[in-house]
């Protein structure tokens, strides 16, 4: 049952809703979450836009990235390092995860996904769904055999993993009525860096031009001599790598649980973003990532402050956006006719 009746008085709620520090807090958390969502959703939207592949395995890459990074920071003793050492190690782990999962993405694309391009979409959905279940169960076996989540190795999981976060990133900085943590700043910075990198790749490189051409009209792009299969492999690799990077970024964040269901937990909002932004639209994905990030942060805030007492209010609000968008504008904010056009 949805228990949304608030114990707070109306005046108290209005005070909270108009508090500058709460508003900026929600905005900053929204940007941080939006940055994570962007890293996950951008690969999903490019993969769909280029080859009409709805990749249900995408969330599993984020879950793998989070696990690999979490185990790595504990195994390498990042918690006992100085700030610079910890940060440097963290970024090395992030690059390694990106490369590892990009390679895994290439293997999946070349050996499995490519075989089904000519088949109806349901085949691809079943295949990627099968991949995600396999990846999840494989991780579940590793987690249980190694007892990662409950604390073998004397390293525990959630608490020690999160406590390995350098205090410089975990601590709150206050400037006027604006409060933010170093981790939020790092997540937003990474989001901006990914945004700039993908934008530059798509708009300033020849390969990016091929990707944009292929997203619009794959057949015509082939007829101009563009090897779309190779382009797709590259996009699949980058998308998988970025999804893994998002996992690394959220591994230290106390708002996220690093467990096997994380694959689904990140996949659903990512699908909402892709649909709300417009299937295959990079600009739409950017806008929708931050929109969903803000709504998510608003829902979390509403629950944490007691305005609404329903644990999944953030999820409910995210899916409400999806429903409204599908009714009012089925092709999404920046979608083009023929792609995701239900009307």
């Amino acid at each position: 049952m949805i228990d949304v009746l608030t114990p707070l008085a109306l005046a108290e709620t209005v005070d909270l809703l108009t508090s500058p520090s709460d508003i900026t807090g929600v905005l900053i958390e929204g940007l941080a979450k939006g940055s994570l969502y962007l890293m996950i959703a951008v690969g999903l939207t490019l993969i769909f836009g280029l080859m009409d592949v709805i990749n249900f395995a995408h969330g599993a890459f984020t879950m793998y990235g989070a696990y690999i990074a979490g185990v790595a920071v504990l195994a390498l003793g990042v918690g006992s390092m100085g700030f610079v050492g910890a940060l440097g190690t963290f970024f090395i782990i992030m690059i390694a995860v990106f490369v590892l999962l990009a390679v895994l993405g290439v293997i999946f694309e070349v050996t499995l996904i490519r075989k089904l391009y000519e088949y109806p979409p349901i085949f691809m959905i079943l295949l990627t769904f099968g991949i995600t279940i396999t990846m999840e169960e494989l991780m579940r076996m590793i987690v249980e055999f190694r007892d990662i989540n409950s604390g073998q190795w004397d390293i525990g999981w959630d608490a020690p993993r999160q406590s390995s976060l350098p205090s410089e990133l975990g601590g709150t900085t206050e400037i006027g009525f604006v409060n933010f943590t170093g981790l939020q700043l790092m997540q937003i910075s990474m989001g901006v860096a990914v945004l700039a990198g993908i934008w530059a790749f798509l708009n300033k490189t020849r390969y990016g031009l091929f990707v944009r051409a292929g997203v619009e009209d794959e057949e015509m792009a082939r007829a101009l001599g563009i090897d779309i299969n190779r382009t797709f492999t590259a996009v699949f690799a980058v998308g998988s790598g970025l999804a893994g990077m998002a996992g690394v970024m959220l591994m230290w964040d106390p708002l996220w649980d690093v467990n096997v269901p994380l694959a689904l937990a990140v996949l659903l909002p990512a699908f909402v973003i892709v649909i709300v932004g417009g299937l295959g639209s990079f600009k739409g994905t950017v806008v929708a990532s931050f929109l969903v990030g803000l709504i998510d942060a608003l829902g979390t805030w509403a629950f944490q402050t007691g305005v609404i007492q329903f644990t999944d209010i953030d999820q409910l609000m995210i899916f409400a956006i999806l429903v409204v968008m599908l009714i009012l504008r089925p092709r999404g904010l920046f979608g083009v006719k023929g792609q995701g056009d239900h009307g």
Binding site: L209, R212, A213, E216, D217, E219, V336
Partner: peptide
């Protein structure tokens, strides 16, 4: 014609 409609003429 099959233009890439969202790309510029030069692109």
């Amino acid at each position: 014609r099959r233009m890439f409609g969202r790309l510029s003429v030069e692109e």
